[in-house]
Design a protein around this nucleic acid. Sequence first.
DNA 1: TATTATTTTGCAACATTGTTGCATTTGAAC
DNA 2: GTTCAAATGCAACAATGTTGCAAAATAATA
Lengths: 138, 138
Amino acid sequence: MHPRIVDTLKRNQLSITDSRKKILEMFLQRKGALAHADIEQQSGEEFDRVTIYRTLQTFVEKGIIHTIPSADNSVRYALCKDDCSEGHHHDNHVHFMCDHCGTTYCLDHVTVPAVVLPSGFKVTQVDVVASGTCMKCQ
Amino acid sequence: MHPRIVDTLKRNQLSITDSRKKILEMFLQRKGALAHADIEQQSGEEFDRVTIYRTLQTFVEKGIIHTIPSADNSVRYALCKDDCSEGHHHDNHVHFMCDHCGTTYCLDHVTVPAVVLPSGFKVTQVDVVASGTCMKCQ
DNA sequence: TATTATTTTGCAACATTGTTGCATTTGAAC
DNA sequence: GTTCAAATGCAACAATGTTGCAAAATAATA
């Protein structure tokens, strides 16, 4: 088991349960974004569907993972780089979604260019979702 | 009825039906993004739910409207500026979603800054989804 | 305009996805 | 180990999205 798992849960004052450990491990191993459905598939019958929903929700609230917007009604989740601060506002972020294999990448080190909006708009968060073909699919 | 409606449908070789006229009119009037649920509510019992799904799908395929990614499993749709070419690839786009009132704005005239991705990624589309407070809500 | 061919719609049935309340179980604290 | 708090699983439900097919509306043709 990945050493960071228990650490992360403790730091966020969460009880250390099987489902949380397992789901967190999936994120740490895969190093890519996961949708609810992915987790459900990978964990087989191990956990109830409801537990997965609640676990993801908890992780998002604690800033352990964050959501990635998508245009097809299938929100994906990815690990936050070193846990965002609690209550989390994940400022700037670039994601890449491969049209071919569907893999979603979370590109933490790509800087989001400043977006200038018309006056009156107060921006607190900018998500950039790029899509195309990833390195594995071309 | 908005004069562009019949035009737009004809140009896209679509039969001119009540549901299409009505839904297209909603987009032309509202000048903001609409979710499936919005349309369903606004049209009351007038059309079947299935018809709305199929109409939206058709409009997207024809490039009359486009989808706006969201982080909450509720894809929204907005009119394409002067219909994208058929088969449509909507290159660059900035959207703004108000955390307060939920209104989604489609900012066609804001330029999307170039995003530089690691080599190996071939980008065909970039969506920028900003969120915060809109001018009506502050 | 009347007739035929094509397209679209509505219905029904179904599949998938997400939510809520509550009893039971598990983990944490003592 | 016992007690308390938290998390899980189950069941039931609500919401959302999909498919096939007959009926209706639209378009094309005479």
